[in-house]
Design a protein around this nucleic acid. Sequence first.
RNA 1: GCGGAUGUGGCGAAAUGGCAGACGCAGGGGACUUAAAAUCCCCUGGCCGCAAGGCCGUGCGGGUUCGAGUCCCGCCAUCCGCACCA
Length: 909
Amino acid sequence: MSRRQYPFHVIEPKWQHRWESEQTFRAWNPGDAIPATHPFGIRHALDGQQATTGALPPKYYILDMFPYPSGAGLHVGHPEGYTATDILARYRRAVGRNVLHPMGWDSFGLPAEQYAVKTGQHPRKTTETNIANFTRQIRSLGFSYDWSREIATTDPEYFKWTQWIFLQIYNAWFNPETNRAEPIGTLIFPADCDTEDKRRAHRDSKRLAFVSEAPVNWCPELGTVLANEEVIDGKSEVGGFPVIRKPMRQWMLRITSFAERLLADLDLLEWTESLKEMQRNWIGRSEGAWVDFQVEGSASKITVFTTRPDTLFGATYMVLSPEHRLVADISTAGQQEAVRKYQATAAARSDLDRTELAKEKTGEFTGAYAINPVNGARIPIWIADYVLASYGTGAIMAVPAHDERDLEFAEAFDLPVLQVVQPSDEKKDWRGFCDEGTAVNSAGAEINLNGLPTVAAKKKITEWLEAKGLGKKTINYKLRDWLFSRQRYWGEPFPIIWRRDTSGNLFHEALPESALPLLPPTLEDYKPTAEGLPPLARAKEWVTLPDGAVRETNTMPQWAGSCWYYLRYLDTKNAGAFVARDAEAYWMGGQAGSTVTPGVDLYVGGTEHAVLHLLYARFWHKVLFDLGHVSTPEPFFKLVNQGLILGEDGVKMSKSRGNVVNPDDVLGEFGADAFRLYEMFMGPLQEVKPWNTRGVEGVYRFLGRVWRLFVDEKSETDYELKTAVNPDAESGFVADIRLDPRLRDVPATAPQLKALHACIRKVTEDLDGLRFNTAISAMMMFINEAMTWETRPVIVLKTFLQLLAPFAPHLAEELWEKVHGLVGVSPVPSLTYSAWPVFDPALLVEDTLEIAVQVNGKVRDVIRVPAAATPADLEAAALVAEKARPFLEAKTVRKIIVVPKKLVNIVVG
RNA sequence: GCGGAUGUGGCGAAAUGGCAGACGCAGGGGACUUAAAAUCCCCUGGCCGCAAGGCCGUGCGGGUUCGAGUCCCGCCAUCCGCACCA
């Protein structure tokens, strides 16, 4: 396709500059002085005034997941979500909302740091270069972001507040009584906390940010620990390097305390069911009981978690995870050696070995026995790595008859299998039956479950255990506390220092707010130290404070900055608070008694963040909510995941496959409007769909048709001749292109109005339902019809431009300007803030209708009837319908179904 | 294995239980042109038929209904999560 359909290369930069210089998309906060000339002010009668919360129109907060500015530049997947949100942002402005639509950069991250390790170039430099490139690319698409609110998580003025929020978390504890985070000052100390050191230790053990010595996922290649979520099949999510378990001192955030609320509050949200389900699975709630087993001949008790306390009589052995703290204590002298050996083997096995390859169960007998509390049975205690240290209590009671894994293990080591549940289906084998049934063989001296269905048996045994002090009903979660420290350079330093107490033990202390932002030191070398300390430890002068305290040298993970960026957008320039209260209340609050949505109205991004980012951000938000800093319990009210865009070959785009489409190339050839339109026309936003360059040409041709519907062919030919001679003055010549003489300021005919209003209706309804593809096809149909009109009334075409504007804003603006020039309206009213057209149902009413005539459900004819025809009229008309009649001959009419305005079905037999 | 989603022309797709395939791509034919590109017009699910028209057709098998792509039951396939979670 060689010839340009229309001069988008001149039009697009022109309007992008205009929007920028006029600050068209600036979103106004309560308290802002709105300039007299700003079209938002003019539309809402706020021009030249100071906006107040009450005077501003209802807010609409529409948010994109901000990108990590990688060196590779923008991918065609990025603009998919961005285009969708931009279209909706423009639509909502036209409808009359005060729209907040911001963009920023999730700019901390590993690639810039790895580049620094290799080249010595400061990550800030790399980051700035990449941001500049992303900015250029995103701006060239003509998105209506309020760029005055641009943020970068690497900006000290931003991460000052990331560190500040960390301190809020650090200075809070979770009160199980109130089920909320509370300031650490409300913590009540136990009586034995009689010294300052003891009180400090107690306090530090309760903080929402705490230090743990637990085994962590250490990735030697990356030189850092990773959160469980960042390890996939025993390899790092980033780079795919091996990960090993290693005990280290780490910062953790107590997200598990919020598990129940993170689960329950999903019900408040308009997210897709699949997304909610992913979060639910991740949180992994399961109801069950803790049961204590006494170790024979020892003071030790082993507590297990089970979801099937009703099978307690079937427990024929117990298993501890190899890392369980009691293993060494209870192992008998004869078994010590073997147990130690097994522990060493298990520790050396990666997570990958433990899961995928672990078809065969392994384990070792400790030599010890436990007493089953229900019947006093003596059962052996084993260790095995099929029991995970990190789930439940790290120990299980094994009921091989009714648990697949226990059965495998019992068969491998020849342990007894005892039936205690009878399947209701008699033919079913009870061995390995894990579903609900009826309790059997479950009677002891004090308790008898026999004959009870599983649910009742669970209830009875749990109550009995609780009464005897042997167990407790409980809820367990798969979710673990969040490992929050990384051994990296390019992240937020912790605002924490370490000192020694009177007995020489290290303890941590928060820096005062006045010390924020705490900047990372300048380094020559960004590698971890030879001893495996984080890179920050290299900066000796930075680490050691004059009074002898030392700084924390870990940094925060990349998730930290993205946990709250949507709040900073509300008030980016605020130097005194992370967000001002009135700004937060206006943009996030669901104002009482109104229909305004609480939180972000619509959040669009990829599924890759379905669990981690969204769970972490919800967690931070809840802490901030509990502490009174934000006004809603949830941050993102409605959330949509855009589907992946595949390469032309139908597989995921990747450099190695060579099927990556670069947005810059598409823009150069077809322009931003065509690119935007194509991304929306491909199919439903949420679906996975392949790229097709021919498809871009299709929507590009459509935009060409729109252009030719308006402009005079001859003046465009003149324009092309002039630019061929003098290309430097091209942009000036665009103004000389005249409109088609068929465009006239005359009243519209009825069919013209009907075409227009059908289009208004379809586009409006589809925008409300995020059905961009069908909205575009409605506009195509309108244009196809309008091309046939001898006279093109300005009023009709002008209204059409308003519908087109959210999708193809540059072209719409250019034609809007020309059309107003034609009818002599000056100054040209702002297209962005012109009121969205409203369709008139009266104009869509038909005089006659096409009615399908069915015989036995098959369409045999289509008849035209007056719209006012009654069901009886329809029936009569259908019975004489010419093409249907042969199918009625020699048959008895048994029944006639009339669907008004649609069809008549004659049932014969 | 568990959970979620999706299966419609050659392709991307569209259809409040009511004329399946709108719109676009690709393909075919025509107009314009010295010619090509661009543009404009027409055709285009499969099979049978000169035609009129008929039959079949929304992954597969059942069911509900006057009527099912759509609702119900049971399968199959693909994609995406999670996965020894007791």
